[in-house]
Design a protein around this nucleic acid. Structure first.
Lengths: 201, 201
DNA sequence: TAATATAAACCGACCGGTCGGTATGTACCG
DNA sequence: CGGTACATACCGACCGGTCGGTTTATATTA
């Protein structure tokens, strides 16, 4: 094995071990030594690859956020009426809930720390801002094309994102929720149609 | 000052200092000594009033949750149609967002730890479960009385709570959201009416 | 009321242990 | 050989929690 291959391998082993530990114990509660032990790697190797404990977390967070961002923009640029695009976007909730099971609390914990560290703030809040403004545009599109009622786009976007965040969060923190198949789509359908009885039985 | 008054005073000073520290630094990051220093109290006094660091957190969390629970049951037992009760309930979002500004991330962080400690799990998740089942009953009522469409009560309740959680969370983590007055009511109105264009201009 | 006794509230030095991070040595690839 | 990848040993700081002792308020005497 070449040097570079070896290096990459240990790096990913550290990353994998870190996500496992952080998920199980939380960020603060896991020591660097824990990660090293789980990765089967020495502390020297750890600090050879990462400047600090926090750097591991950013390395973990960044690709995840990027993936999310890509999925959103993909769904947003589809040539469909706004409601359909929204429903399609709703499947994201399922994906994030499924693959992010235990990781979400961890990211939440990290988000908390972000308030202190500007470098982390950038990595977390900036994608979120883009995320929400994407929704604003989506709603504006829908209103313009007449597929959506003339609602306040900012408010609607906030509600949409809130719904998504809330669903993912509840799925992560209390998995006993009455989820079932296609939770995201069904939830968004409720929002699209409304729940008041407009006369129909 | 009597002994009891003195005791209560220091206890509340510890609690106040704790919420300040936890809010600013996070739970794990604040040491007991930090809290003591901020409260102007010795470590001995601290451990005289609380068994452990965690006990402070439960003491902080419990009344807050109880207050929330009381407000919910109050709104839920009103003799009104379900939609009105929902709108009234929506004002809770404003209250929680306002008075819980910096505290929510802290509670979130604690919720994360709750997964490990059963005693904490009870205090946090149990009220949440009650919370959600209250919503289920509310929706069932609405469907029964005909004010709400015959939607799945479990799903609707999940969506409602998600919306609330999401709104509060975003308000807390990124206060630059386009909130404005009566955000909760306006959000719930959107959900009640739906956002698709049903033919009306 | 003054003196005394007792209990509760409070203090702060201190403990074992762990933490994130560093300095130094070794093995191996190019 | 030169340098990169890793291992080991170690550092000072700090953690949550304990403990023996001191102050303060109350109960009981006389």
């Amino acid at each position: 094995m070449t040097n570079d291959e070896r290096s990459d391998a240990t790096r990913t082993r550290i990353l994998d071990a870190a996500v496992a530990c952080f998920t199980r114990e939380g960020y603060d509660a896991t020591s660097v030594s824990d990660v090293c032990r789980a990765a089967g790697v020495s502390k020297g190797a750890f600090y050879h690859h990462f400047d600090a404990k926090q750097a591991v977390f950013v390395a973990l967070l960044e690709p995840w956020l990027a993936e999310l961002d890509a999925a959103v923009t993909e769904a947003l640029t589809r040539r469909q009426p706004a409601p359909q695009r929204l429903v399609h976007l709703a499947t994201l909730v399922n994906r994030v809930t499924a693959e992010g099971r235990g990781r979400i609390p961890m990211f939440l914990e990290f988000w908390r720390q972000a308030a202190k560290d500007p470098s982390v703030w950038r990595v977390t809040v900036e994608p979120y801002r883009r995320f929400r403004s994407s929704f604003v545009r989506l709603v504006e599109d829908g209103v313009a094309e007449g597929s959506l009622r003339p609602v306040d786009p900012d408010l609607a976007a906030l509600v949409l994102v809130s719904l998504g965040v809330g669903l993912v969060l509840q799925g992560a923190l209390d998995p006993v929720s009455p989820a079932g198949q296609g939770l995201g789509e069904r939830a968004i359908a409720l929002l699209l149609e409304g729940i008041t009885n407009g006369g129909a039985s």
